[in-house]
């Protein structure tokens, strides 16, 4: 067993005779802050996972050490990193995929005892008993990708859409109903919706911006411009100051251009 800085180092093999393998660094996952998705004592942490390693393949390999509850990836260790990794990928009818980069993995076992068995592995073998790689690559992968993910069967898709829209409509009706009742919660607060006698305005940045602008405008004192002599003098001086500033900026630009020999015509 090779260890480095507290991690168990094992080769990742794609074929039985593989040479020049990647090295996977494993240890039991621990963190100061409690994360319910990565429970202490049952989570295995992997570093330097190649981009082509899939969730299924890790389940297959580490399933030998015990039943697996979940496998999750992230670009790097960190509490929010897993959420970032899967951002947008769960949306229906969208093409977003997780990044294809080297990553870290979290394997959550159902039992504590599986951690020790996993750490005892001498290698992570991504091939089956007949020596074939279980990670799909090549034409098989691309054909499957094309037939299953790129081309959509029209009828199946329509059914899928109907089902999804039914769920959406239900959620919308529930939200509308909740907005209409206006009952007080435990602390006595009442949510103000868009309907009813006491309807509130939409909480949009643009709407709020316009309201604030209106208030500011009302508070503004009405003042004549360029009426008094001192105002005229100040205005002229301001113009000159602005012109000077502009010229200074242009001189700075010339200085920048000068560095790149932009004034030698030949």
């Amino acid at each position: 067993m090779v260890e480095l800085e507290g991690y168990v180092v094992v080769p990742l093999r794609t074929t039985p005779k593989a040479q020049h393998c990647h090295s996977i660094y494993m240890r039991e996952h621990f963190i100061r802050l409690m994360d319910p998705n990565k429970p202490k004592g049952r989570t295995l942490f992997l570093l330097n996972v190649p981009p082509y390693v899939t969730e299924d393949s890790l389940r297959t390999v580490f399933g030998r050490a015990g039943s697996i509850e979940a496998v999750e990836f992230a670009a790097k260790p960190g509490k929010e990193e897993t959420i970032k990794w899967y951002e947008g990928t769960g949306e229906p009818f969208s093409n977003t995929r997780p990044p294809f980069v080297f990553k870290v993995a979290y394997i959550v076992f159902e039992k504590n005892s599986s951690i020790g068995k996993a750490l005892a592995l001498k290698s992570i073998d991504l091939f089956n008993s007949s020596g074939e790689c279980i990670v799909k690559t090549g034409m098989e992968l691309w054909h499957e990708e094309y037939d299953c993910n790129y081309l959509l069967d029209a009828q199946k898709t329509k059914l899928q859409i109907s089902k999804y829209m039914a769920g959406y409509d239900k959620r919308e009706r529930a939200a509308a109903q909740a907005a209409k009742t206006g009952e007080a919660d435990a602390d006595g607060w009442v949510t103000v919706g868009k309907e009813g006698r006491n309807a509130g305005f939409e909480q949009k940045a643009s709407v709020i911006g316009r309201l604030e602008e209106k208030v500011a405008k009302g508070n503004k004192t009405k003042e004549l411009k360029n009426f008094y002599t001192f105002q005229i003098r100040e205005s002229k001086m301001q113009n000159i100051v602005e012109m000077r500033k502009k010229f200074e900026e242009e001189k700075r630009k010339i200085g920048l251009l000068k560095q790149s020999r932009r004034f030698k015509p030949f």
Binding site: E91, P92, F93, S94, L152, A154, T157, K158, Q160, I161, Y164, M165, Y168, R171, E172
Partner: peptide, 21 residues
């Protein structure tokens, strides 16, 4: 149009299928 991204995309897909038909 729906106010949810997934639902909106679902409707778009349905619309395209209808155009195709």
């Amino acid at each position: 149009w729906p106010t949810e991204l997934g639902a909106l995309r679902a409707l778009k897909t349905a619309f395209l299928i209808e155009i195709g038909e």
